[in-house]
Design a protein around this nucleic acid. Structure first.
Lengths: 148, 148
DNA sequence: TTGGGCACTTACCAAAAGGTGCATACTTGT
DNA sequence: ACAAGTATGCACCTTTTGGTAAGTGCCCAA
């Protein structure tokens, strides 16, 4: 597949999509992005993948502390889903006290790599993002904004 | 407390993180990815951004049809949030019958570009993803799996 | 003996997110 | 006249998601 945006015949007047056109209508999904989203849906999954990608095999406790503000129940739950989806691998060392660690499968690894640009984007635009959230916090406290 | 799998000098046996280390502990976020996720949290937001990036300014109705299965209420809602967050621009042509279109701001455009790898990932791995979902559908119909 | 850490599990709950359906004001097509 | 399309708003409700708090079995340190 050639990656150049030169379109021989169509109108040169359009805003020139900087994003390559994605295969729409995959079997069951509206597009590739849709498919991906189904897998990483879950408040902490992208973070989990990303941390595992950076830190390599990580024990449960460490992960728990890395992903701040997550509860045991949810962390475990998301890890199980990620495992079921073939993105992470759980290793139980059958020791006592318990010792378990989580790592990425090749598939998980590839997904984590696809998350890199999102992470960079966030880092580059923390300013905008946190400002937006500061503003939201004002009216998102149990009340709609009184006047448009 | 020393975990012999994360020692600065010993153990050259690690999987060699293919993902660059991300700035952890940004002000308010655990990392850049965290920041990004706050902005695109919402079932349809990434899709919206992506479609706008590909199609350029898009009328409400078209968008509605592109993002299949979304309801008016939710679409509108997410568009408003994206607008409030400075990612999309709403243009009301003040015509009758109503004519409005949505487009990306530069910020939104940059985010959309960061979504490209996710879309590619999904496209490349539709097989795995849909298989996983097929399996999930089996036991995710109002009941836990009876026996391991 | 008490307390803590480990890696979970379970029951119970609150909140968020999303969906349905009806309404609007006006136009166009049949 | 009537249905349909346009871009929303609103009330209401269900589903999903996530959080809390407690408990488990085992070991080690104080």
């Amino acid at each position: 597949m050639s990656l150049d945006d030169s379109d021989p015949i169509s109108s040169p007047l359009q805003p020139a999509p900087a994003v390559q056109s994605c295969t729409r209508n995959l079997p069951g999904f509206t597009c590739g992005l849709d498919a991906t989203l189904r897998v990483i849906a879950g408040k902490w999954k992208p973070l989990i993948l990303y941390f595992l990608a950076q830190d390599g095999p990580t024990r449960y406790g460490e992960l728990r502390r890395a992903v701040r503000d997550v509860s045991d129940k949810v962390l475990i739950q998301q890890l199980k889903e990620l495992e079921a989806d073939g993105l992470v691998k759980r290793t139980d060392y059958k020791e006592v006290p318990p010792r378990v660690d989580y790592s990425l499968t090749p598939l998980g690894q590839s997904l984590a790599e696809a998350l890199v640009p999102l992470c960079s984007w966030g880092t580059e635009h923390v300013a905008e993002v946190s400002q937006v959230f500061a503003e939201r916090a004002t009216w998102t406290r149990r009340g709609r904004q009184p006047t448009g």
